[in-house]
Amino acid sequence: MCPGSFDPVTNGHLDIVGRASRLFDEVIIGVLINQSKTGLFTIEERLDILREATAPYDNVRVASFHGLLVDFCKAQGAAVVVKGLRAVSDFDYELQMAQMNIGLSGVETLFMPTNPLYSFLSSSLVKDVVKWGGDASAYVPDFVGERLVARLKQD
């Protein structure tokens, strides 16, 4: 299970998914439905974008969820959560989540160090770059960049 909001998916996310797809028979990308936040892209749009971005991987599927990640993992038959770590600050937060998840349900967490090319990258940074007219094409798939530009020009 690779969970997140993916608003939008970045090349850093896709690097983790691709690496996880080589380790596991099946990888599920779980898109969190957070009703207290309004994303740039709707849940349906994020699911479509992720399906297109992960099309090269025949063992990756995409689904949305709300509530506890461990409940979604159990419903999907996923025993491992895969999380990318960019920095020590990510580890502090993610370790607490991993410990809670194993305590709640026995779901393990595998931490993968992010490729150094993407160690600074976040969806929020990509949105800010595009919002202010910058070129984020090195950080997202081409079609995602095009959708970002189109969406942010509407605002």
Score class of each variant (00 low, 15 high):
71 D>I: 00
42 T>D: 07
130 V>Q: 01
105 S>V: 02
83 K>R: 15
44 E>T: 13
142 D>W: 01
122 S>T: 06
99 Q>F: 12
134 G>M: 04
14 L>P: 11
152 L>Y: 01
8 P>L: 10
28 I>K: 11
72 F>T: 04
92 D>Y: 13
123 S>F: 00
126 V>H: 02
86 R>V: 07
117 L>K: 14
81 V>S: 03
95 L>A: 14
116 P>W: 05
46 R>T: 07
9 V>Y: 09
52 E>M: 13
88 V>A: 14
36 S>T: 15
93 Y>G: 11
63 A>G: 04
68 L>R: 00
130 V>D: 00
53 A>S: 15
19 R>E: 13
80 V>I: 15
65 F>T: 01
94 E>W: 02
26 E>I: 09
86 R>Y: 08
15 D>N: 15
68 L>T: 00
153 K>A: 09
93 Y>Q: 12
130 V>I: 10
119 S>F: 12
106 G>Q: 05
82 V>T: 07
104 L>G: 03
37 K>W: 03
139 Y>E: 08
78 A>C: 12
16 I>K: 06
122 S>C: 05
21 S>T: 12
106 G>D: 07
1 M>G: 13
27 V>R: 01
48 D>C: 06
81 V>D: 00
134 G>I: 05
114 T>F: 03
59 N>H: 02
33 I>K: 14
48 D>H: 07
100 M>R: 08
140 V>W: 03
119 S>K: 10
134 G>P: 08
57 Y>I: 02
105 S>T: 02
87 A>Y: 04
14 L>W: 14
110 L>D: 03
38 T>P: 04
97 M>H: 08
95 L>G: 09
1 M>V: 12
96 Q>G: 15
70 V>Y: 00
25 D>G: 15
154 Q>K: 15
32 L>T: 04
87 A>F: 09
45 E>C: 06
46 R>N: 10
66 H>V: 02
115 N>W: 06
150 A>S: 13
128 D>Y: 03
58 D>A: 12
18 G>Q: 15
85 L>N: 08
60 V>W: 03
70 V>R: 01
54 T>G: 12
145 G>M: 07
67 G>N: 02
135 D>T: 05
70 V>I: 02
126 V>N: 02
103 G>V: 05
27 V>M: 00
13 H>Q: 13
4 G>Y: 11
5 S>Q: 10
18 G>K: 15
109 T>Q: 04
